[in-house]
Design a protein around this nucleic acid. Structure first.
Lengths: 190, 190
DNA sequence: CGATGCCTACCTATTAGTAGGAAGACAACA
DNA sequence: TGTTGTCTTCCTACTAATAGGTAGGCATCG
């Protein structure tokens, strides 16, 4: 089935945000990409702030669903963590989405519309919570051995993932992502 | 002594880049901040690309000088690493420069002028090299115990530092930086 | 003198956003 | 059945503000 126009707009806008952030794209860019007039985009999303807010909302929801289904369908916490990292590794390798929308926006935090900033903050929190719960389960099963609390270890992982995405992008070296995260998860293993 | 106009321009532009990236500021912003006309800025820096290139060049040079003098004046590799992290911790805590210029620009890599992208890439490389040499010295002295090679461990640290800066910014929590980096350097200690 | 620093005044392209209309889909209804 | 009326989608055409950048003039200083 064909994608609806508003979904096409969101898809294009998302890849533009990933590429250049909130100030790195315009309605004209989207217009050109999907063959529609600028005014038609305003019909679907009255302001840029509203567009990005819907976009981030969708992204956060999809991420939460993905992480939740990972916890539900993959039994082993070690495999859950591996699957999460494999997702990003794939994104980086095939350049389909070589950066996290919320990480991108977090770097521009100070100039984001309030609502978007709030959403980004919540995403960082819920991601850390998910990782903390995975690490805690793994620790209880004796599969992980943590130096600090699951919550603190989760914050380290969140930072490592985003930092590794950034390094890979900066150096144009997709393999760098796993080179950084590999040792980081290896040391968690009991 | 008074700062020269071009240094004032660079200072303001740098804090604007840190806040919002390459596309997050304009000549008008600088003009307003230092009380000078837009055209006068063009007199000092003919194009925005040239301005940012000079700005990044200055930043990279200062960083290299700082790191070099740290290696020269601080004997212990462990103290060298601590001093490097203390520098960023201070920047984050007092909000003087809560993010790395090159990390900010790295996130926008795909839309940067070629010359600036090159400079950012080089900064990431030289930072990793410095950290690798510090880690190697520390390992040889028995002060560090590394799981992987100094080079790989350095890439992990670069990613951790930038990721921690990003998390601290995203959550608006300055203490998060050290909460992430503390355990990371602790595990390196023999 | 010439170079430097800063100015006024201007330019063109692009920005986000608006007003109002045409075309089609889809009911409700006589 | 045809005929409304409304809703959605997209359009042309426009706006005011801002973007980066240019031309040329006026002081000042070595």
């Amino acid at each position: 089935m064909e994608l609806s126009t508003s979904e096409k707009i969101l898809d294009v806008a998302q890849s533009l945000v990933v590429a250049g952030g909130y100030n790195g794209f315009s309605y004209a860019d989207i217009s050109e990409a999907i063959g529609i007039r600028k005014a038609s985009i305003h019909h679907h999303f009255p302001t840029k702030a509203a567009l990005v807010s819907v976009l981030v909302g969708r992204y956060v929801r999809q991420a939460q669903e993905g992480l939740k289904s990972l916890r539900d369908h993959v039994p082993d916490p070690v495999d859950q963590l591996d699957a999460y990292l494999a997702y990003w590794q794939k994104c980086v390798i095939d350049s389909s989405e070589p950066f996290c929308v919320c990480a991108m926006l977090a770097s521009e935090m100070q100039m984001l519309p309030d609502e978007v900033a709030r959403q980004v903050r919540l995403h960082f929190q819920s991601l850390a919570e998910w990782l903390a719960s995975v690490l805690k389960s793994g620790e209880e099963q004796g599969a992980f051995q943590l130096d600090v609390s699951p919550g603190e270890e989760a914050q380290i992982l969140v930072a490592s993932v985003h930092g590794a995405l950034l390094s890979a992008r900066a150096l144009g070296d997709a393999k760098l992502f796993l080179a950084i995260l590999g040792p980081q998860v290896a040391r968690l293993r009991a």
